[in-house]
């Protein structure tokens, strides 16, 4: 049963697959997040928000063979949700990790995060949930890795660029910009026009550049 379609997750809640009821992950999540169990989530283990869900791969899954790979591929084909794969990377399952990473991240374009055990998985899920909540509440500025739009004015950068022209320092750069206004117009200036601003030699150098 491939149920990977979207599910409505109430604000700040996590919907967990029935099969995790009573597990260590679930016990550690309870109290920290509002966890609801539901039957028939299919491939998905936890829904964090309307567009983000988690697939949990245990140490045993990794060692047992390729079944989990089929699960990832089926999920990817069936769903447009953002799938975060959490995998139990232990001393025993370590050797399989590079293969899983290649499949999940490079080939399927999913997110893959390793944890050492179910306790770490629950801690990671709690952090992920808090970011999903912030995303929904549009506190986007709170993410330190999302770039804020609108940079500083271009003037200092334009001035720096003009100074890269051989024989042009700060003073000449300012003078040139005063006369020509933009880099494009400076590029299209004739030697005569340049000579009116700077000396003959420098004008020639700028023109050849």
């Amino acid at each position: 049963p491939v149920t990977a379609g979207s599910i409505v997750v109430p604000y700040g809640h996590v919907i967990g697959n029935e099969k995790w009821r009573g597990s260590e992950v679930a016990q550690r999540l309870q109290g920290k997040v509002r966890l609801i169990f539901e039957d028939g989530l299919g491939l998905v283990d936890f829904h964090l928000s309307n567009r983000t869900c988690i697939l949990l791969i245990s140490e045993a899954d990794l060692v047992a063979g390729d079944e989990f790979k089929r699960r990832l591929v089926r999920f990817r084909n069936a769903s447009s949700l953002r799938g975060i794969v959490i995998v139990e990377k232990t001393q025993i399952s370590d050797q399989y990790y590079p293969g899983v990473q290649k499949l999940a991240v490079l080939e399927l374009g999913m997110v893959l995060l390793p944890v050492a055990n179910q306790e770490e998985a629950s801690q990671l899920i709690i952090q992920l949930v808090s970011f999903c909540v912030r995303e929904q509440s549009r506190e986007r500025g709170s993410n330190p890795f999302v770039r804020r739009q609108r940079g500083p004015p271009a003037e200092p950068a334009v001035l720096r660029a003009v100074q890269r022209i051989p024989a042009v320092g700060k003073t000449k750069a300012l003078l040139l910009l005063q006369h020509f206004g933009s880099i494009q117009r400076l590029c299209n200036a004739s030697v005569c026009q340049l000579e009116q601003v700077v000396g003959q030699t420098v004008a020639q150098q700028i023109y050849t550049f």
Partner: peptide, 19 residues
């Protein structure tokens, strides 16, 4: 907890993570 927080922020920012 900080480590998990950084990973979550990276995921949300759309940065690809490899280990």
């Amino acid at each position: 907890q900080h480590y998990d927080g950084v990973l979550s922020a990276l995921v949300q920012a759309g940065v690809r993570i490899l280990f």
